[in-house]
Design a protein around this nucleic acid. Structure first.
Length: 444
DNA sequence: TCTGGGGTCCTAGGACCC
DNA sequence: TCTGGGGTCCTAGGACCC
């Protein structure tokens, strides 16, 4: 250990100890927990698309994102089950509650995984490896679910360790043994290396993290671009001491719907984008936020997609305004693609988010501009007030109690709302201890 | 029957300003 | 008049993650 002799010691960061806890085959494990007859059998959650597969099914090559048909081909004995989405949320929250018993420094990154910085907890709970074992024991005993845990000196390495630990295992990478652990592992275990990057690295013969770490920064940046190259270089060298972030706010909010194959019509755009805008704007208002940039994505048969966006001088969270902008952007995108008659997906998202308090000052302006450009239409302020009234009715009587007309013309297909909610990042990040559901209104 | 939904970050070019 | 650098914002697209 280095000790400076002068008055000022160099800022030598204390070696942190990070745990990464990751529930195994989460949705599938919950289904097997709820229905004992499914245990030990290959199951998939979903239908048209596999949302999650049990380890028994993974052994046949079934994995998330795969079409149901392909999964059945690979695994003839596969059982499909519908999802119990509320249970996923409840059990994911329950794991985080267990983690918070060891430290308040918990960063939840999705419904089923989180980082913990236990550096300051060692004097209470003993060595990190013991804490990790106790977390696994408690999650197993109290939730009935298998969880894998990685322990290391950095977030990224802890995450790699938990992946290596799966299923239902524990891997501890001691300080000083990082290179030995990382070098033989394939590059795709690094966070940020997907199929495209793996291919590019492979074209240069770089297949292991050790080989990646031995590649010069200049070569990597030439191969992958400056940011990705630099990031990957530091990850491979295990020189990426990222802090645990406990309270992150989303930078954008969006919603999308896969449509099958549909011939474009104004009616279709109005109905679908109306539905999506309603979802997004309602969530924005519930979080007390609004955004300046609206982006629409249109996907065509053949999976090619285009986006169009617009940035407004002020932020919006009004359902009808968002829907109108969305339809305008979609029409603009389609006008540039005269060859495409059929679309397979529509998406809308709002970014450049600001707190709603900033919005208040703009509403008068919004109203004036509205009156100027569309005399006789209801102003932004009036729309906002009526949205708030609708939010309150829905809070009391449920989402289906009230809605805009166009949305009623949507075709019946689509995933359940519960699944959409599950995928929302804020929903996973938010449940603070003791904080119930509150509406923006009640905070003022 | 081609492929669920919600996010983050980066790149590259152009507009615009100093 | 021409040249140049630097910064910021915007738009479209892509890779990646859970």
């Amino acid at each position: 250990m280095f000790v400076a002799s002068g008055a000022m010691a160099p800022a030598q960061p204390l070696r942190a100890t990070i745990l990464h806890a990751d529930l195994d085959a989460f949705y599938a494990s919950v289904e097997q927990l709820l229905d004992p007859s499914l245990r030990g059998r290959p199951i998939a959650v979903g239908g048209g698309v596999v949302l999650a597969a049990s380890y028994e099914a993974k052994a046949f090559g079934v994995h998330g994102g795969m079409s149901g048909r392909r999964a059945r081909e690979l695994c003839p004995g596969l059982t499909f089950v519908g999802g119990h989405f509320r249970e996923y949320q409840r059990l994911g929250d329950a794991m985080v509650d267990v983690l918070r018993d060891f430290t308040p420094v918990v960063e939840r990154i999705s419904i089923d995984e989180a980082f913990l910085d236990v550096t300051g907890s060692v004097h209470l709970f003993g060595p990190p490896a013991g804490m990790a074992a106790e977390i696994r024991r408690r999650v197993g005993a109290e939730l009935g679910l298998p969880v894998s845990v990685g322990v290391a000196t950095t977030k990224h390495l802890a995450k790699v360790a938990s992946q290596v630990a799966k299923p239902d295992g524990l891997v501890v990478v001691e300080a000083g043994e990082e290179r030995e652990f990382l070098d033989p592992l394939p590059v795709e275990l690094l966070w940020g290396v997907g199929p495209a990057t793996r291919e590019r690295l492979g074209s240069r013969g770089i297949r292991t993290i050790g080989a990646l770490a031995a590649t010069s920064p200049a070569t990597l940046q030439k191969l992958l671009g400056s940011a990705v190259g630099a990031k990957l270089g530091s990850l491979a060298a295990n020189a990426d001491p990222r802090r645990i972030e406990t309270g992150r706010r989303a930078g954008s909010m969006g919603a999308q719907s896969a449509l099958g194959r549909r011939v474009v019509s104004e009616q279709l755009l109005r109905a679908e984008l109306g539905f999506l805008a309603d979802r997004v704007a309602t969530r924005l208002r519930a979080k007390g936020r609004a955004g300046r940039t609206v982006t629409v994505r249109v996907r065509f048969a053949g999976m090619r997609s285009v986006t169009r966006s617009v940035t407004l001088p002020w932020a919006i969270s009004v359902t009808l305004t968002l829907a109108e902008l969305g339809v305008g952007l979609a029409c603009a995108a389609l006008a540039d693609e005269p060859g495409e008659r059929e679309i397979t997906l529509l998406a809308i998202s709002v970014s450049n988010l600001v707190p709603e308090s900033a919005l208040q000052l703009e509403l008068d302006l919004d109203a004036r501009v509205d009156q100027q450009h569309r005399p006789g239409t209801r102003s932004g302020a009036a729309r906002w007030a009526s949205d708030r009234a609708m939010d309150r009715v829905r809070d009391r009587f449920g989402r289906g109690a009230l809605g805009y007309g166009d949305v009623m013309f949507r075709s019946g297909r689509g995933v359940p709302d519960e699944f959409r909610e599950l995928a929302e990042k804020d929903a996973a990040a938010l449940p603070e201890p003791g904080a119930g559901h509150r509406h923006a209104d009640e905070r003022r």
